[in-house]
Design a protein around this nucleic acid. Structure first.
Lengths: 201, 201
DNA sequence: CGGTCGATGTATCGGGACGATACATCGGGA
DNA sequence: TCCCGATGTATCGTCCCGATACATCGACCG
C-alpha cells in the first residue's frame, strides 16, 4: 500500500481543475514542497493506475490503435491527454482528506500532501493532524538525540556534524509545527467548501 | 548508475572492519544521517552485487551443503555471514573517495556518504567537495526562493508555509556548510592514513 | 525444566520510484 | 528556413522499500 502519496496529490490537483500530465508535474513540484520534483517515470504509471481504478478519466478515447508488425514509422499524432477526476475520485479524495490518524502524519510525504490540501480539510481534523505530526517528529527527535548521545565518543567529527545538523533540522521542524498549530488555533483557516483559492485560477 | 550510494557506504564500513549484514545495517543508519535507515530489502541485494563484482568476499563458502545429522553443528556460527572487503574493493573505495567533481556533491545522499568518510579523503578534496556542495545547495535555494516569489499570490497559506519551511531548511544547510568550510580551512582534519578511528571498536 | 520473549540474523517478493531515453509538436528568433 | 527550447507523452532497466518468513540465541520466569 505504499504508493498513495502520488495518487493523493494528483487527485487533489485534479480536484481543482482538469490538467494534462506536463502541468500536473509542475504543480506537483510546488505542492510537494519545492524540492523533490516527480519524474514522468512515476507520474504516468500513477495516472495509469488511477485510470484503471476509475478515479480519473481521459479525453483521447482510443490512442491504442492496433499497429501492425511492419508498421509505418508511426510518426502518428501523439496528442495532449487531459485528465479529469471522476465522482469516485472525488469520493476517494474526500475520504483521504478526512483521515486524522497516524496514516495521515506518520509518513512525512503523506503529511505534506495533507498540508497542501488543508483547504479541503475540516478544521478539527487539521488540528489533529498537525498535533499528531508534531508528536511523531518529536519522537524522531528524541531518538536522534539519544542516538547522538550514545555515539558521541565513537564517531569522528564529520559524522557527528552530519548528525548534529540532522537533529537541528528535526528540531526546527517541531518548532515550525508548533507555530502552525498556534496559528491554527488562533485563527483557523476557512473550512472545506467555504472558499476556493484566494486569487482564483 | 543510480545505486552507488549504498555500495559506497558499505565499502566504507567494511574498510574499517569485516562485519555481517545486521551490524552493517545499524552502522549504516548512523552513517547515513540518523534518519533514513536502510532496509534489508536494499542491503542484501547490494551485498550480492558487491560480491558478484568481486569487491567483497564472504566466509561461509558452502552454506548449502546438506549437513548430516551426525555432524556437530558448530553452535553459534550457523547462518552468520561475515563480509570482508577485497583488494579490488579497497581500490574502488579509494577511487570513490578521491572524486571531487559534481558527482561527489550534486546528490545529497552521495555527499552525505562522502562526508561520513572524510577521514579517508585528502584535505584539498574535502574542501572542494564542501564548496561544491555549497554551490549546489545555494542554487537550489535560489531556485526555491524565486519559485516562492512567483507563486506567493497563487497559493494558500499552508502550501506557502510548506515552501517557506523548505526554503528555511535549505538556507540553514548553506550556513551549516559554510561553518564546515570555515572550520576545515582553519584546522583541516587529519588526512587519509594519518589516523584510524579515534576510539577504535 | 520448559516456555517464551526480544535481540540477533539471513533472505525474498511485489510494487513503486527514478533517471535515462525516445519520440513528437510548436512558437519564435537568427 | 531552420533550429532551438518549451511543451508534451511514454517506457525501460534498475534500484529501493515495506512486509514477510524463518532461524538461533541468551535471559528471565514460573
Amino acid at each position: 500500500m505504499g504508493g498513495e502519496v502520488l495518487e493523493f496529490a494528483i487527485l487533489g490537483l485534479l480536484q481543482q481543475s482538469p490538467m494534462h500530465g506536463y502541468e500536473l508535474r509542475k504543480r506537483l513540484a510546488e505542492v510537494l514542497g519545492g524540492l523533490r520534483s516527480i519524474s514522468y517515470g512515476s507520474l504516468y504509471p500513477a495516472l495509469k493506475r488511477l485510470h484503471a481504478a476509475g478515479l480519473v478519466t481521459t479525453d483521447e478515447p482510443d490512442r491504442r490503435a492496433p499497429l501492425p508488425a511492419d508498421a509505418p514509422p508511426l510518426t502518428g499524432r501523439r496528442g495532449k491527454v487531459v485528465y479529469t477526476i471522476t465522482a469516485e475520485g472525488k469520493e476517494r479524495f474526500a475520504e483521504l482528506v478526512s483521515q486524522a490518524g497516524p496514516e495521515a502524519y506518520d509518513d512525512g510525504r503523506l503529511f505534506g500532501v495533507h498540508l497542501a490540501f488543508f483547504r479541503h480539510t475540516a478544521a478539527d481534523v487539521r488540528l489533529r493532524i498537525l498535533e499528531g505530526r508534531r508528536r511523531t517528529v518529536e519522537r524522531q527527535r528524541d531518538g536522534l538525540r539519544s542516538s547522538l548521545a550514545r555515539t558521541r565518543e565513537r564517531l569522528d567529527r564529520y559524522t557527528l556534524e552530519l548528525q548534529r545538523h540532522g537533529l537541528d533540522s528535526v528540531d526546527r521542524e517541531v518548532r515550525w509545527l508548533s507555530e502552525l498549530i498556534d496559528s491554527e488555533r488562533r485563527q483557523p483557516g476557512p473550512g472545506p467548501g467555504e472558499r476556493p483559492p484566494p486569487g482564483g485560477e
